[in-house]
Design a protein around this nucleic acid. Structure first.
Length: 259
DNA sequence: ATGGTTGCGAAGCAA
């Protein structure tokens, strides 16, 4: 089965539902992973997505996190969280089988300040994610791990390296944690098709950052080789950052062809 | 210029 997979940090699904429905209607993803829904499971607008043809699973407790997977190619064996042994620090992981691909939707902690408790919690969380993935799956599985990683993988992924000196999202330890996950057997779908700098998925709301091209690429679709080898194209939809009440993130998409 | 914007929720905090 071929499918189009997307991931989008919507920064409150309640505030963004109109933009999300609009985007689904023109982009027509087969699978859409959402982060920062910021709502309880009971508030998740399952019916709205059903009407658009999507099954869904949501994992949220009303805090600042909340993740979901929508699928119109089937959604089976959903799992919320990373298993009993791992504290998620909120609702940050949800997984499901969608059209023959295991999809893991993640919202990695922000980290706030380098050296802070929250920064160390972020590194611990990333180690937990890696061990969860390695425990549950094999690199030969058809697996996608996608979402808001809150890490810019390398220097091409920030608008100005000097502006990020000493900041989170770019530190050696965060990048090492991401590289540990990649080294297990995952690849960045966008980088399989584009190598240039200044391709961003997030821009600060403040100071006209979007119009000044001052962003970061922190939203990623990572895939094992069985999926990567089928990935014919990937892009990020800048249109979603324009207009009324946009999220500060944009959707990242990957086209997965037939086996 | 330690600023600026958004969401949540009703004051600051988180991002």
């Amino acid at each position: 089965m071929s499918l189009v997979l997307a991931t989008w940090n919507v920064n409150s699904l309640r505030a963004r539902i109109g933009r999300v429905v609009e985007w689904i209607e023109y982009a027509e993803p087969d699978v859409l992973c959402l982060q920062e829904t910021k709502m309880n499971d009971s508030a998740f607008p399952e019916g709205v997505f059903n009407d658009l043809g999507y099954s869904s699973v949501h994992h949220g407790d009303g805090g600042w996190n909340g993740v979901a997977i929508l699928s119109k190619v089937g959604l089976e064996d959903a799992e919320k969280g990373m298993g009993d042994r791992v504290d998620e620090m909120g609702c940050r992981v949800v997984s499901a089988d969608c059209g023959g691909i295991r999809v893991v939707c993640v919202y990695v902690p922000n980290g706030r300040e380098v050296g802070s408790k929250f920064y160390h919690d972020k590194l611990d969380w990333l180690a937990s994610l890696r061990s969860y993935i390695a425990r549950r799956y094999r690199p030969t599985d058809a697996l996608v791990v996608c979402g808001d990683f809150n890490i810019a993988p390398d220097e091409r992924d920030v608008w100005d390296e000097k502006a990020f000196e000493g900041a989170t999202h770019v530190s050696d330890s965060e990048r090492a944690a991401l590289n540990d996950l990649l080294a297990w057997g995952l690849s960045d779908c966008l980088r399989a098709h584009y190598s240039q700098a200044d391709l961003f998925s997030w821009w600060d709301y403040r100071g006209g950052a979007f119009h000044k091209h001052q962003g970061m690429r922190i939203d990623l679709i990572l895939a094992t080789m069985p999926v990567l080898s089928r990935c014919s194209f990937s892009l990020m939809d800048r249109n979603a950052r324009k207009g009324d009440k946009p999220s500060d993130h944009i959707p990242v998409m990957a086209w997965i062809g037939d086996e």
